[in-house]
Amino acid sequence: MKVLVPVKRVVDANVKVRVKGDGSGVELANVKMAMNPFDEIAVEEAIRLKDAGKVEEIIVVSIGPAQAQETLRTALAMGADRAILVKTDETAEPLGVAKVLKGVVDAEKPGLVILGKQAIDDDANQTGQMLAALLGWAQGTFASKVEINGDKAKVTREVDGGLQTIDLKMPAIVTVDLRLNQPRYASLPNIMKAKKKPLDEKSAADFGADLKPRLKVVKTEEPGGRKAGVKVKDVAELVSSLKSAGVI
């Protein structure tokens, strides 16, 4: 079975994000970028499935600018087998991405697509679900455990109030949550070898899709700072303050 892992290049989680002066988005110039942490977990899960003999080939795909190649190399260095870069200078939006991914799935025919439940830049949490709808495939979102048995995938989902375990009929889409695994480091010898692994460059049109923006960004602004608190004398004052603030 082939597994497809879409990975996104995002601002590194440790970077303090700054809004551009004109409010059109966040500053990306000279900012450290990295693989979306949820996608790293997805790559790790695919490698573990391969190590367990459930998967023969891991294909990673990224939709983004030329530099997204670096994100793909990271995935190759971790253990993916080959990579596809769908190059675009447009902002990748969930629906456009899902349509391109549908094209990739049609071309590559993977038995499983594993991806992060969301990217830490726009936190949309839509791509996996949209892709499942476009393909008409089963989906297991927010996975904290994945087991593949023949043509069934048993996925444990992190839902409000606990864990839910579902059986999916393959082929399927799995979106991964934080606690699924601890991704490995891209090891130094594998980084050196990753250069020799195939990386194809494509366009959205090659997959019969387009990435033209469907959303309009009205405004981007920094969250307001926290306001100073007030000290209360006793519980009675606390309760009455909460009441007057309309919280309780």
């Binding site: 670096e70 190399r73 260095a77 480091y185 891209a186 130094l188 980084i191 250069k195």
Partner: peptide, 15 residues
Amino acid sequence: SEEQRLIVDTTRAFV
């Protein structure tokens, strides 16, 4: 190079 950046990233993350 791309490899050098990856090596820096991996080493930094490990450290």
